Simulated scan of single mutants.
Amino acid sequence: MLSLTRTWAVMSKEFVQLTRDRLTYAMILLLPIVQLLLFGYAINDDPRHLPTAVLVQDNGAFSRSILTAMNNSGYFDISVQARSQHELDRALERGEVQFAVIIPADFTERVVRGDAAQVLVEADATDPSATSGAVAALASLPTQALTRDLTGPLAARRPGSAPFEVVVHRRYNPEAITAYNIVPGLLGVILSMTLVMMTSQGMARERERGTMESLLSTPVRPLEVMVGKLAPYVLVGMLQAAVILVMARVLFDVPMSGGWLALILGLMLFIIGSLALGFLISTVAKTQLQAMQMSFFYMLPSILLSGFMFPFRGMPEWAQAIGVTVPVTHLLRVVRGSLLKGVGLENAGPSLFALALFVLVVGTLAMLRYRTTLD
C-alpha cells in the first residue's frame, strides 16, 4: 500500500537536495528561458539593413536615386563610401560589408541613350542565407528606382523595358553551396564541444575520485597545473582540426583559398582559449554533471549567436553584442575568411586579436580561481 508518510519523507529529502545543489537546478530553470529569448528575439532568417559599400563614379541624379531606392528597401544600409575598387575589395574581404555597389562613370549617359546601362552589385556569399533576401529585392530595382527621374521623352525611349540592369556577382561562393559555409563553421563548434567538455570534466572527475588531494599536496603552482593538463589536449585539438579540414576538402570539396598562417594562428588561439575555459569551469563545478551542464550553457550561444546556424547580421544589435563576446564567432570569421577568401593576417587581425584577448582573460581567471586546497 502507498504510504503518504514515506512518500512525504522522500519528497522532503528531494527538496532538501534542491537547496544543496543550487547550481544544477538554477541551470535547469535558466536554460529554457535563454532558449526562448534567443529563438524568439535573436534569430532571424531574413536579415535586413546589411552594411553596404558603394563606389559611385557617376554623381548624377540617377545614381542618387538608385542609392536612395536601395536604402529604402530595408535590406541595404550604405555605410562605406569607397574611393577605389581596392577599398571595396578590402571591405568585402575583411567582412566589414555584405555588399559592394559600383555605378560606372557612363551610367547616366547610357540610361539617357537607352544603351544597356548596368549597375554592378558584389555580394559576400560566404553565407548564402544572409544575402538571398537582399539579392531577391534587387530584382525590382531597375523598374522602380528611376520612375520619378525618367519622365517625358526619357520614358518614351524605352517603353515597357527597364532603364538599366543590375548585375549581381556572388563572390567567394558563386554557386551558393551551403556546405561551403556550414562545414568550415563546424570546425569551431566541434572543437568547442570536445575541448571544453573534456577539460571541464577532467578536474571534476579527479575531485570526485579523490585524486585531486595528491595533486594539491605537491608544490605545483596553478600555472604549472594548467599548462601540464592542457598541453596534451592542444595536440588533440590540432589533430581534430586537421581531420576536419581534410574531410571538408575530400568529401565536400570546400575550397582552400589560402591564408594558412592566419588559419593556424586562429586555431591555436581558439584551442588554447577553449581549454582554458574548460579549466575555469572545472574550478567552479563540483561534479562532472555540473561541469557538463555549464559546458552546455556555454555551447548554446556559441551555436546560435556566432553566425554558425543563422546569419550574424540578421540578429538585433543586443544579440550581436553578445555574439561578439563568443570566441566561436571570431574563429568562424578566420576559418571562412581563410578558406573561402584567402585572407591573410592583416585582414584577419581583428578576429585574431579578439581570440588572443579571450585566451588572456580566461587563462587569468582560471589561475585566480584555482585553489591550493579542496575547500
Rank of each mutant, 00 (worst) to 15 (best):
R371T: 13
L191S: 10
R209T: 08
I322D: 05
L223E: 12
T24F: 14
S338R: 08
R157V: 12
T143Y: 07
L216K: 02
F358G: 02
S79G: 10
F358H: 10
L38W: 06
S140R: 14
G74P: 02
A125L: 04
P219L: 06
W260G: 04
V189L: 12
G363V: 05
V225R: 07
P51K: 00
E346G: 05
N347E: 14
L355C: 03
L331I: 07
R333H: 14
V121M: 10
L29N: 02
G337W: 04
Q17S: 09
H169R: 14
V334I: 14
L368R: 12
D253K: 12
A9H: 11
H86N: 13
S65Y: 07
Q118T: 13
A69R: 11
R371G: 13
L120G: 01
G228Q: 01
L37P: 01
E87K: 00
S257K: 15
A155R: 12
P47N: 08
S217C: 11
M212S: 05
L300M: 15
G60Y: 00
V254K: 04
L216Y: 04
L239I: 13
F107L: 06
L239F: 07
A155H: 10
L67S: 03
V166Q: 02
L18Q: 10
T131S: 11
S338A: 15
F308A: 07
V183G: 06
R20I: 05
F279C: 00
M247R: 05
L2K: 06
L289M: 14
A155F: 10
L275N: 05
P255W: 03
A116S: 15
A61C: 00
S257M: 12
L92M: 12
Q201D: 00
L30K: 03
E93S: 12
V335K: 06
F76W: 02
Q240R: 09
A348G: 10
A204P: 03
G188E: 10
R313N: 11
A262C: 08
M70I: 05
L245M: 15
Y298T: 11
G152I: 03
V225M: 13
R371N: 11
T151Q: 13
P51N: 04
R171V: 09
F164A: 03
R94T: 12
S84N: 09
L277A: 06
V196C: 01
P47A: 06
E93K: 15
L245F: 09
V254P: 06
V361W: 07
A145P: 09
S302R: 02
A137F: 06
L55G: 03
I182H: 07
V220C: 06
S79W: 00
L191H: 06
G228I: 01
D253W: 09
L277Y: 08
V236G: 00
H330F: 11
M238E: 12
M315A: 09
R371V: 12
I272D: 00
G337N: 02
P32W: 01
R170D: 10
P104G: 03
A134T: 00
P184N: 07
G323I: 05
S192H: 14
V196H: 01
